[in-house]
Simulated scan of single mutants.
Amino acid sequence: MDGTKKLNLHGFNNLTKSLSFSLYDISWAKSDTHRNDYLKYIDQQYNADRLTNILREVVEIIDANILNIARQDYEPQGASVTMLISERTQTIAAHLDKSHICVHTYPESHPHNGISTFRADIEVSTCGIISPLKALNFLIHSFDSDVVTLDYRVRGFTRDIRGAKHYIDHDISSIQNFVSEDVHNRYEMVDVNVYQENIFHTKMMLKELNIQRHVFGLGVGSLSQFEQNQAKQMLSKEIKEIFYGRNLD
């Protein structure tokens, strides 16, 4: 990872690095049938098998080994996958068995206005020198998200050969430092960081609302101009409410 400090350690690197995502996809469906079809589509698109494949790729990107996989599809909707992982280059794997990757999905729909939302929560938690930030852009690209909230935290400490404690082993001022240029171009981003605690939080919201991409089950051409404007207004409000974390009147 860029900015990693080369420390001569006494024993293991005991730092825990956790990268957490909440990724939201928002759609508008005109009828109850279309809303039900949306939930079915999401369940098929992001079932346990597909999520497992995404997490396998994450393991490759961060150069780790899979020790165990647990996965489950739920009724009526949703799926979960958890992987226990270890560092490939670490000879004593038991120390790193505490590293894991997990994903949970939450499809839902508004009971009245046609808005349907899919949320995926992902956590990549690693011990030692494995960096979850290496998988940041891959995971953002793996989901068609309108809003993304990111949390990165480094916990604990590790000691160098002199016995001094180190509470972080790499340079970081923002999660945005590790976001690719194309992602920067697509999203507005805001940081809420607590530097003294090694806690970093970034919120991302899609810059441009493409009504065609957000209408499910119908082409925009089949909607009247009034319906298009209404759908766009509701979608925009939903995206902003999720981004700001509060209901907007």
Rank of each mutant, 00 (worst) to 15 (best):
I92Q: 08
E181I: 12
E108N: 10
L39N: 07
N36W: 01
D144L: 09
Q176T: 05
N177D: 12
T16A: 04
R35S: 10
G114K: 04
N68M: 13
V194C: 02
A64P: 12
G217E: 11
D160Y: 13
I172C: 07
D191Q: 02
H104I: 09
R153Y: 03
H201F: 01
H95D: 08
F178Q: 03
K232E: 13
I140L: 14
P107L: 09
K240G: 06
D43Q: 05
R88Q: 13
R246M: 13
R186E: 12
Y24I: 01
L136I: 10
I129F: 07
T89G: 15
L55Q: 00
K207M: 13
K237M: 14
L51V: 03
K232S: 10
D160A: 11
T89M: 15
I69A: 01
E181C: 04
F243P: 11
V58Y: 07
S20G: 11
W28N: 12
E57M: 04
K237F: 12
A48M: 09
M1G: 15
L7I: 07
S142G: 12
H214N: 12
H141C: 06
G78D: 04
D43M: 05
E75D: 01
T158D: 08
M234Y: 15
T4F: 12
T149F: 09
P107I: 05
I54V: 08
I129H: 05
S99M: 05
R119L: 04
R71N: 06
H170R: 14
K237T: 15
Y195S: 01
A79S: 15
D73A: 03
S31A: 09
L96E: 02
D49P: 06
M204D: 01
L206F: 08
D151M: 05
I242A: 08
Q77E: 03
Q196R: 07
F138C: 00
V194D: 03
E197W: 00
L23K: 05
I92Y: 13
D146E: 10
S86G: 11
Q77N: 13
S116M: 10
F138R: 10
H214A: 05
Y74G: 03
K17Y: 06
R186Q: 15
R159G: 02
K17C: 01
T126Q: 01
P132M: 09
T158Q: 05
N177M: 00
L206C: 10
D43T: 00
N177F: 00
D73W: 00
S222I: 07
T91K: 15
H184N: 15
Y167D: 06
F138V: 02
D146N: 14
S174R: 04
N177V: 02
H100V: 03
Q45C: 07
V179W: 04
H34W: 08
Q77I: 00
Y41W: 15
F226G: 03
D171W: 09
S86D: 03
E57V: 04
D182W: 14
H184E: 11
V192N: 14
M83C: 00
A94K: 10
H184S: 13
R162Y: 10
L96I: 02
M234G: 10
Q72H: 04
H112M: 14
H214K: 15
V190K: 06
G221W: 12
E188K: 13
F138N: 07
V147L: 00
N185V: 01
